[in-house]
Nucleic acid binder design. Structure first.
Lengths: 222, 222, 222, 222
DNA sequence: TATGAATGAGAATTCATTCAT
DNA sequence: GATGAATGAATTCTCATTCAT
């Protein structure tokens, strides 16, 4: 195991334990024992317990930001190319769920520790959190500009959609073996499309249109 | 300050600090310093750090359970008396926000510590959490029986609505001085009514009907 | 309950608890709860926990010293009046057992806490202990001068007899409901008379003679 | 200092302090200061204060049990091989004294903490104590079967002999630089042989016979 | 006199971090 | 690089003693 591999190994182990036990309860001993390394070795790769935890958080947000970036691009492209914006949105939702399902430990860490603790890292968490929120809000504004949304307070909507997302991930994704992500995404999208569609929209058609854009065989892709 | 007052004082101080720093990070020293009492005095009123924390959690859920109870009754009565069920629902939402706005510390504590940490009390939190969830689900089932909901997976819906609620409370209620609870409740209700209304519902009318049931002057009641 | 009575009451209660739990483990709370008084009241009658403990110890030694004094006198008188010295000794043994059986708490306290702890009171305990030992040694010297003892090291003999006494009290007296003190005293005396009698003594006769001097009805006197 | 050495060092230091101050009064701080180690280091080698104390107690009884075992064997062999049983007994006494003189701290700890305190370990001490007592009693029964004892209550005798032993150790062995163990053993044996010999025994001869079996040069062996 | 709420020094124990090997 | 023994600051909790009522 070379330097980089070892570092990654420790990160993975730490992620799993932090997710299970939380920051305070997890001890360096826990980590090095599972990682199969000596106490001192840990400090060759990471400055402190705080630092490795922060790195995990950053890595979650980095990955998530990338997903949101792609989502934004996908939406923009759909609009530009006169494509199916709803299908793009449907895909975006799917990608968000996928990301979280594939990174359950990071997810647990962030949403289990994210709320206002005055630990040093809570500031960073809040900062990153606001970043993600901003990206989502931008997506909504884009949709608004294209008359895909009824008139409503986008700030509140963003909160509601984020909350729904997080909670669905928590309740219905994490800790389960097999989840049909496609069906979940459909359910989720239909709910929020109905909630947001402008007056006079033929929602049945919208939903059908959104789903039509999606042709996935077995959903196990992620 | 007599016994009861002092106890309440300590509880309040502890709630504020736990909300800010979380369970592990908060030390008895933190609490007694802010409360202006001696170390030992704390232990005259509470058996342990764990006990006072649990008491705060229980008190949150007790209050919340009561709100949900009343909400359930309000909804049932609306149905029985041929009243305005939507207005009842609108009132319910308002009450939930009100409760959390009036108990911001308890709210922070519970939602900051709720996710699966292997603390002793995470079991209790989960238990109470599931209770609250169950009550909300019952509400939805009642509405479903009265054809107020379109066909959908109530489990997922419950997760989404709870998530929305929590996140709206977190983002838009806590830490703000002045929030227009009425407007927020309206916004929230309209979003979820649209999301859940059966096909063919005249949503404009529903929303107007729901709001008509509410005649509150200045919203500052809580 | 007047002042003196209350003080005595507290002493008794404390003796019982100290005997059961030892000095360190016994708390002022234990004592005042059983005594049915307030915390502060205790300090009206005693300066400190240490002080009441010392007072109990002193009271044990005071009583024991008195027994030893009487024993010494009894022995001297027997010699002076040409009486039955062995019977006097037999009586002395009985009195020692009687004293301890009647003061089980004090006994437990002293022999449970007596050995070299560097608590402040261990000095006092040692001092008093040496006093008792000295008195016993004097008794032996008196017997020696009257040719009742074979040639031996009285210091060691004193240690052995004290040890026997303490251990018999501990093993066979304390914590038992009904003990036949007469029989125990006989057994004890015979053992030590045999051990100490000068060569050529007719021990059978000695023992019989010692016992003859004792005419007690039911032994329950104490 | 390697691991084992350090552990032994801590044990020795702790034994000395426990012996001097008793369990409750001794703090971990006392131990680590004298041992010249950090607070945490103590917990690398021992789980708790209670555990190290128990280990010392166990080690005393283990050593003592071994002595008693050997003594029993020595006595049995003497009987089987038609050897000098009295000399064996004399040797046994010597060995008991030797063991305690060589382990003064353990001795102090056990006999200072032995009496019924409601500490967790008092149960263990009592248990082990009863074991030692049982072994001694067995020795006496063996002697009784071989007609070496007069008719008497062996339970009481056991108490007396144990008490003598303990007290002689306490008064005449512990805390002294130079003790003539041979002479002390002789004195002790003569006392108890006289006390226990059957009627008609020629005690002078017995004592001489017992001592003849012992040929030791300088007594400093232990 | 009597009280008991309040105190704070001191106890055992944990654990992130260092550093000599 | 790798190790893990050593550290000590920090934590929770206890209890003898005080003092205002």
């Amino acid at each position: 195991m070379n330097g980089w591999e070892r570092r990654e190994h420790i990160l993975q182990v730490a992620a799993e334990i932090f997710a299970r036990k939380g920051y305070r309860t997890t001890s360096i001993t826990d980590i090095v024992e599972v990682a199969g390394i000596g106490r001192g070795t840990f400090y060759l790769y990471f400055e402190s317990k705080r630092e490795i935890f922060l790195e995990l958080i950053e890595s979650y947000f980095e990955g998530f930001a990338q997903v949101l970036e792609e989502n934004q691009r996908r939406l923009e492209e759909a609009f530009l190319e006169g494509g199916n914006a709803l299908a793009a949105w449907r895909e975006n939702i799917y990608r968000v769920f996928l990301y979280h399902r594939d990174n359950p430990h990071l997810t647990s860490i962030v949403y289990g520790e994210a709320m206002g603790r005055d630990e040093d890292f809570s500031l960073r968490v809040d900062e990153l959190s606001r970043l993600a929120r901003k990206k989502l809000l931008e997506g909504f504004r884009l949709m608004e500009r294209h008359r895909m949304l009824r008139d409503c307070d986008l700030e509140t909507v963003t909160s509601m959609v984020m909350g729904s997302t997080i909670n669905v991930i928590r309740d219905r994704l994490l800790g389960r073996k097999r989840v049909n992500l496609e069906r979940l995404s459909d359910e989720f999208m239909e709910y929020h499309i109905r909630a947001l569609a402008p007056r006079g929209t033929d929602i049945q058609r919208s939903v059908r249109s959104a789903m039509k854009g999606v042709k996935r065989g077995a959903e196990g892709a992620g």
